[in-house]
Design a binder for these strands. Structure first.
Length: 399
RNA sequence: GGUGAGAUAGUCAAGUGGCCAACGACGGCAGACUGUAAAUCUGCUCCCUAUGGGUUCGGAGGUUCGACUCCUCCUCUCACCA
């Protein structure tokens, strides 16, 4: 029993600190039914979760199966500072209003994966507000500047002459203090959180709460480009609230290498099954596209439904395999004749008339499936199907 | 507070009086090839109904026929000193 639980918990992890502790907690659960707490912090800076976040959520869900109670920590206080992790610049500070709004949509999305009955949502401003200047100072005395500067992201920013606000130094301390207050048994986070996560252990020791949290780190999920981490600001993400069509299409557009990574971190298939598929692909008995489709279906189904996932697949085949036009196309209309470049811009499929002309020149623009060659073309009364490249479509009605 | 260095398009980074809408790299877009994969090859990459015009090189002024380039002030960053 414990073996199986441990296997599932260890799956895909980048690093675990104090695995013995996790084993003990599991043992206590199986022997005495004792539950334990698993903390994970979320920054309510953006209202949408993407698949990168779900890697963590899935791991939390795994803990919930084996006696873990999740402390879903909303960084309502720390969001005012902004986590310096991986940032090349000081983050903009959020207002309380923004935060409240973000949290609402955040938690609904999270409960698509987490078991709500085994989750406690906590806000760190509840105790951090009360910490006060004296408490802050006491907290800060636990950390030296030299140690702070050891942090890779800080030293890099320092080296590249990017500003670092002093308040950002406080971030790891506050995050660590959360673990003191919550008396967390385990904390999980991305590998980029290592410093912050370890701070929790150090502070729990310093504040003598008689336990030190185990730390479990998940790899960072790469975005669609396969290089940089998935993030909204880089635009390389698959959002939990993306439509089934988008989700399916985005997953199919990732590279084959990245696909295996996604399988490992996002799929519920066992590692054995995944390894087997990989072998079959390598010896040519299984087409990688098929494997990718299965992944796309699995994930789309998780956030939508089986029917919608299948419909998304059909739509995709229709548009791309058979190069027919998509079902839903944004429609626009205008009064009087219009210049083609202007029309493309008006329909939001080209950013400017300059760009439109360039694309026409390069043969990237089609009207009613026919390539446009004349960049001065005027559209007269009628209905047109405009297309730029392979994926941008719009319908335009000229009156 | 003092001294010195720096701020250039999405990012990095050349350019130090006209040849500059600004080298190059990355990214991005389009085309070819494909499985809307990767790799590769080609073209494009500020805006404007365009062989031309307009607005750009942290901000505001100034010198000059002409400024990203020189001067003054301001804002921000970094380093060293205190």
């Amino acid at each position: 029993m414990i073996e199986q639980a441990l296997d599932e918990i260890n799956r895909g992890c980048a690093e675990i600190i104090d695995n013995e502790r996790i084993e003990k907690l599991l043992k206590a659960y199986y022997d005495e039914g004792k539950t334990y707490t698993v903390k994970a912090g979320f920054d309510p800076t953006a209202p949408d979760l993407h698949l990168g976040h779900t890697v963590l959520l899935q791991k939390l869900a795994a803990f919930q199966k084996y006696g873990g109670r999740v402390q879903f920590l909303i960084g309502s206080f720390t969001a005012m500072i902004g986590d310096p992790t991986g940032k090349s610049a000081t983050r903009k500070v959020l207002t309380q209003d923004d935060i409240v709004k973000n949290i609402a949509s955040y938690t609904t999305q999270a409960f698509k994966i987490l078991d709500e009955s085994k989750t406690d949502i906590v806000y760190n401003n509840e105790w951090l507000d009360k910490l006060g200047a004296a408490g802050m100072l006491q907290l800060a005395s636990n950390l030296t500047v030299a140690r702070m500067l050891e942090r890779d992201d800080f030293s890099k920013r320092f080296a590249s002459q990017t500003p670092i606000a002093v308040s950002e130094f406080m971030y790891p301390l506050l995050q660590g203090y959360d673990s003191v207050h919550l008396q967390s048994d385990i904390e999980i986070g991305g590998t980029d959180q290592k410093f912050n996560l370890l701070m929790g252990r150090q502070l729990q020791k310093a504040y003598e709460i008689k336990k030190q949290q185990a730390v479990l780190m998940m790899p960072i999920l790469e975005g669609l480009d396969g290089v940089q981490k998935m993030s909204k600001s880089l635009g390389n993400y698959i959002g939990v609230t993306d439509t089934a069509n988008d989700m399916f299409g985005k997953i199919l557009s990732i590279s084959d290498d990245l696909m295996w990574r996604y399988y490992e971190l996002l799929s519920t298939k066992t590692l054995d099954v995944i390894a087997q598929m990989k072998t079959s692909v390598e010896d040519g008995s299984l087409h990688p596209k098929k494997v990718k489709e299965d992944l796309a279906l699995e994930i789309t189904e998780r956030f939508h439904s089986r029917e919608e996932a299948n419909a998304a697949k059909e739509e995709f085949d229709k548009v791309h395999a058979k190069s027919q036009i998509p079902t839903d196309i944004a429609e626009f209309s205008c009064e009087g004749d219009i210049w083609i470049a202007k029309a493309l811009q008006e329909c939001n499929i080209e950013p400017s008339t300059s760009q439109a002309r360039r694309d026409i020149k390069q043969g990237g623009v089609k009207i009613n499936q026919e390539k446009v060659t004349d960049e001065k073309l005027q559209l007269t009364q009628g209905e047109y199907l405009l297309q730029v490249g392979k994926r941008k479509f719009a319908k335009l009605k000229v009156n």
